[in-house]
């Protein structure tokens, strides 16, 4: 069941588009904002609300980088692995994060605190290397800086 709030937020977008089927991505992102990810059950509920088949919704969900079809940790770290960050030390940043968190890319820490994912260019190449933690952009990263950043997310 979609919560009343989720439904209200999705329906508030209806008037921005001539066809409510256009809201597949927005609807999944709204659900994900509340629950962290988009479950099979949520897909079914969104499917009924928008009149889009579950399989079509899933084909959309799996196309996009920012829609999670599996549970993630309380905080999602997305590390830029594109060219400017790679040039400026992405490997070091990735290895440090993997060591500190004890997980590989794509995994969640056993305490459910962090999920570690790669992401493409974050458009902040003059401050490479960079990563997003939830909605916060962190730039000019080095191992010490990463340690203090991680402390901010409980």
């Amino acid at each position: 069941m979609l919560s009343a709030e989720e439904r209200r937020e999705i329906e508030a977008e209806f008037e921005h588009y001539p066809d409510k089927r256009a809201l597949t991505i927005d609807a999944m992102k709204i659900v994900q904002k509340h629950r962290g990810w988009v479950s099979d059950e949520a897909l079914k509920d969104i499917s009924e609300l928008l009149g889009v088949s579950v399989s079509e919704l899933d084909s959309v969900a799996t196309f996009y980088n920012l829609i999670f079809r599996k549970p993630v940790g309380r905080h999602v770290i997305m590390v830029c692995d594109s060219i400017s960050c790679w040039t400026m030390g992405y490997d070091r940043v990735r290895d440090h994060l993997m060591n500190r968190l004890g997980v590989k890319m794509g995994e969640t820490t056993p305490d459910g605190r962090f999920t570690l994912l790669p992401i493409v260019c974050l458009g902040t190449c003059d401050h490479a290397p960079a990563m997003l933690v939830d909605e916060d952009l962190h730039r000019d990263l080095d191992p010490e800086k990463i340690d203090s950043i991680l402390e901010q997310y409980k």
């Binding site: 493409v120 260019c121 458009g123 902040t124």
Partner: peptide, 11 residues
């Protein structure tokens, strides 16, 4: 949708 790697002007 600024996503071309190495591009950071529209931001």
């Amino acid at each position: 949708d600024e996503m071309e790697p190495g591009t950071f002007k529209d931001r």
